[in-house]
Amino acid sequence: EITKEQQALMKVIVDAYNKHQIPQDVTKKLLQEQYSVEENFLLLTEMATNQVQVLVEFTKTIPGFLSLDHEDQIALLKGSAVEAMFLRSAQVFSTKMPNGHTEVLEERIRKSGMSEEFMTPMFNFYKSIGSLHMVQEEQALLTAITILTPDRPYVKDQQAVERLQEPMLDVLRKLCVLQHPKKPQYFAQLLGRLTELRTLNHYHAEMLTSWRMN
């Protein structure tokens, strides 16, 4: 059973997640006419900057986050930004969009100069997230849990971060049982995706280097 306090926590997270999204005028640009590889690169990097700003705004609303040590706040955001961005992007590929928009986006990313060896695991991740059919609450909580990972580099007070992450994990676990009563492994599967995310994060620096070189 989800307690009233847990419901309130979930509402704060979901409302913030929905409120802080990339502005539509930016996302619309992705669906416009043909671009060159260079323009795709510029557009995607502009979106990445936007995504980080949106991510920070979302994170500020996580109860207790702003009371953490300021440098720890930065360490958490720095350590999780890439993973949170992949999670958010995965949502685009797991939602049915009109008029083949998903295909247009995939094509644009594939033609942005990034190496195939990095592209394949990324799209595989998007598909594996898509196959889970997460509800909005799960998506928002999973993002918050990713950000509040205590063992990111340079985090000094890991226990303080754990104290914020644990209630989120507890709500998510309960939500999974309620939402997917026939899938007892669902919560474990969600956490498994976080491990996959860490792998993507690990290769991200190499990915960027190859992208710049190309």
């Binding site: 510029l42 700003q53 300021h70 706040q73 720095k78």
Partner: peptide
Amino acid sequence: PGNSIGLEAIIRKALMGKYHD
């Protein structure tokens, strides 16, 4: 690219509520 600023700089500015510097 062009006006490349690092991830940390974007985060610090966003935490202070400064977006368009």
